[in-house]
Computed example of a mutant assay.
Amino acid sequence: MKLSEMACGVSAVVSDLSALPAATRKKLMVMGVLPNTELSVVRIAPMGDPLQVRVRGVDIALRKQIAANIDVEVR
């Protein structure tokens, strides 16, 4: 499943980031979005972009285009 397809309040584990460009992937990894890391969607903006995602206790706003390239496994 893609991160952009998740509903609010759902938790998942990051499984793959390889579809992202290298620069974007590095920035997300520095912010804690790593493979096998649990994250949850806190809120989705009214127009669907951006998503508020909680990773390791920190909230990050991700564009839907970026979230569509992050594979997750729902728990």
Rank of each mutant, 00 (worst) to 15 (best):
S15C: 07
K27P: 04
A12D: 03
A7R: 11
L28M: 14
R75L: 08
L62N: 04
G57C: 02
L39Q: 12
M6G: 09
N69I: 00
V42H: 03
S4T: 02
K26Q: 12
M29D: 02
S15N: 01
S4V: 04
L51W: 03
A68Q: 15
V53Y: 04
L17E: 13
M6F: 08
K26F: 05
V30T: 05
C8V: 14
L17V: 08
N36W: 09
V55K: 09
G9T: 01
L20G: 03
A12F: 03
D71I: 02
D59L: 04
R54K: 15
M47L: 09
M29Y: 08
L17S: 11
V74W: 07
V53N: 01
V58G: 02
R43H: 13
S18P: 10
L39M: 15
L62Q: 01
V14M: 11
G57Q: 04
K26T: 05
P46S: 02
V55F: 09
D49R: 07
N36D: 13
D49S: 10
D59K: 09
A68V: 06
P50H: 03
D59S: 13
S4P: 00
A19M: 12
A68N: 13
S15A: 09
A7T: 02
L62D: 01
R25I: 11
T24D: 01
L39C: 14
I70Y: 10
R75H: 01
C8M: 11
P21Q: 12
V41Y: 07
M6H: 10
G32W: 03
A22R: 14
D16R: 15
I60G: 04
V13F: 11
I44N: 01
V72C: 10
G32D: 03
A23L: 12
L28Y: 13
I60A: 06
P35R: 14
V72D: 10
M6P: 11
A61T: 06
M31R: 14
A22D: 12
D71G: 02
N69P: 03
V41C: 11
I66Q: 06
V10K: 12
L51T: 03
N69Y: 08
R54E: 14
Q65K: 14
R75G: 00
P50L: 04
M31D: 10
G48E: 05
E5L: 12
P50E: 02
M47D: 08
R25N: 10
S15M: 10
L34Q: 14
E5S: 11
N69L: 15
P50V: 01
K27G: 15
L20C: 04
M47Y: 04
R43V: 00
S11N: 09
K27N: 15
M1R: 01
V58H: 11
K27S: 14
L39R: 12
R56C: 05
I60W: 08
M47H: 06
K26S: 08
P46H: 01
A23F: 09
E73Q: 11
E5R: 11
V13I: 13
P46R: 06
I66C: 13
V13S: 09
A7W: 00
A7Q: 10
K64W: 00
E73G: 00
A19R: 14
